[in-house]
Design a protein around this nucleic acid. Structure first.
Lengths: 289, 289
DNA sequence: AAGGATATCTGACTAAAGTCAGATATATGC
DNA sequence: GCATATATCTGACTTTAGTCAGATATCCTT
């Protein structure tokens, strides 16, 4: 009655009808779903016609007609791509933006209603994050970013908050050896953020330069753990280190972060003696590239 | 960037594409989705044509044609309802059962693959249960059942397991005053199970008879908490008690079950002195109907 | 037994989605 | 410069989904 497969399928049935409800409310704006989806894709920043076609899985003929329809409605305009005149770039007109905002309002309202009707708000959100990360794993991309970007700062904030929760003595960034942002930007180092559908869900920093560099700030959102993202981030950081001509990597961590320690041991890192006087770490690793 | 509404919408996008993938794989059996859905509804035990129509939200004309198509394929047969010859009852033929099993295999495989690709199996399942319960709340029905039914026994098993986890001294059914099943069946009492999409997610027992009766075994699945189900179950038990002519209800509970105590206090129950010598409870309540 | 209600079916439609074979313009490799 | 590949568009379809007004048979109430 309650085997795992039945539970997954029960979930599928529940969300299928919820998804259907959103589609129905989209129809309320008097436009077929196909056209509404194209308009929303453009509104969400997809400009390249071919990319939209792939994203929505449409035939090129159908896509072309939907674009023509939206143009006739005065909601979008298309222009040739600067580098390649075969390709077309679509964008919203002022009227298109208004219409797009109306669809956004429908989606936002639905999401808000769902939250408002449930007292277990935080638990629900955490569950949704977990499932979205698991479903969207193949769509998770690693992007090199400035550590001062919004996305990076969000990740770092979550990282520090988690350390504060997990270290018995708490955590205060000021007491730790906080790397200068410039050390984590090329050509000295690198900072990589994992993005899943527009949301930052993990990060890692590479603090250079010279032959010896340090891995810092490896963090994976709770909702995305167990999906191999930590390993992907570490691989990406190592690749960046190789590109920068770095021969030896070091890192420090704390034995309270058990998953991290396991990951390092399993991926070719060896424990070495303490190499700094930071008060928080109690475990030190090295890896030769 | 991470406001609750964005998180819900990210979830929506992730499941929308997953649901679309299942639909697409259903098309692989060379039958339009509408027909496949009707076939699956029948396979899952929905026999009454009108009920299927409501469930799938179909127009009666469309429904009729889909049934005719499945009949022509030799997958289903229809017959008049025994009590009301206007209504029709649909059932699968042998070929229909084979075809239905093929669809089941697709759904099961998809669910299994999803679980196999994720190491956080239990966390994912718990998250899915929670979301399915929250989304399916309006579809949760309370059904009076025999306490010896599979569904009731499942609920009771979960209930005992939870007590064992939450009581410091553990819990052994044999030491507790276990009500005889016959005391929780009409006309002496009642046993009510909350069913969500075929899954039992909560229960409550009313142990009679006479003027004084006891509420026993109130349980709500962890995935369904915070959705007001406990209150609905208690209301249903009270209604059943009134129908049975019971004037006073009593119950015992343990202060370790904080949510339960709160619920009783908020719904008109008053604390009374101990009225039995069961070793587990330490809190006693009464309510006059 | 009559009149109204109900469940399903049929026929005649429309709208939306999807398919496919060219046509056209542009890009790329040799 | 020419053959080939690519991106989009157009025209001519088919299929699927959905709608609506009756027709038919049966049930329920009085």
């Amino acid at each position: 009655m309650l085997d795992p497969v039945s539970r997954v399928r029960r979930f599928n049935r529940a969300v299928t009808s919820a998804v259907g409800a959103l589609d129905t409310s989209f129809l309320g704006r008097g436009r077929p779903l196909g056209a509404a989806r194209v308009l929303n894709a453009i509104g969400h920043g997809r400009a390249d016609v071919g990319e939209i076609r792939d994203y929505l899985g449409l035939d090129s003929g159908l896509m072309s007609r939907l674009l023509r329809g939206l143009e006739d409605e005065g909601l979008i305009q298309t222009a040739a791509h600067g580098d390649d005149a075969r390709r077309r770039i679509a964008s919203l007109t002022a009227a298109g933006k208004r219409e797009f905002n109306a669809y956004e309002a429908i989606s936002n309202r639905q999401a808000k209603d769902f939250l408002a009707h449930n007292s277990q708000r935080e638990a629900l959100l955490a569950a949704m994050d977990l499932i979205a990360s698991a479903l969207g794993r193949d769509g998770t991309t690693l992007v090199e970013m400035d550590p001062r970007s919004d996305e990076a700062r969000y990740c770092l904030g979550e990282y520090y908050a988690e350390l504060a929760r997990r270290f018995r003595q708490g955590f205060d960034v000021k007491l730790s050896r906080d790397p200068d942002a410039k050390d984590m930007v090329r050509p000295r180092g690198s900072f990589i953020v994992a993005m899943s559908d527009g949301l930052p869900i993990g990060c890692v920093g590479l603090k250079g330069g010279g032959e010896l560099a340090e891995i810092k700030r490896l963090w994976v959102a709770p909702a995305a753990r167990g999906l191999g993202l930590g390993r992907r981030l570490m691989d990406a950081a190592e690749t960046a280190a190789r590109e920068l001509g770095i021969a030896v990597l070091r890192l420090d961590t704390n034995s309270a972060l058990a998953e991290a320690g396991q990951l390092y041991r399993r991926t070719g890192w060896t424990e070495i003696p303490r190499f700094n006087d930071d008060p928080y770490p109690d475990l030190f690793f090295e890896k030769r590239l």
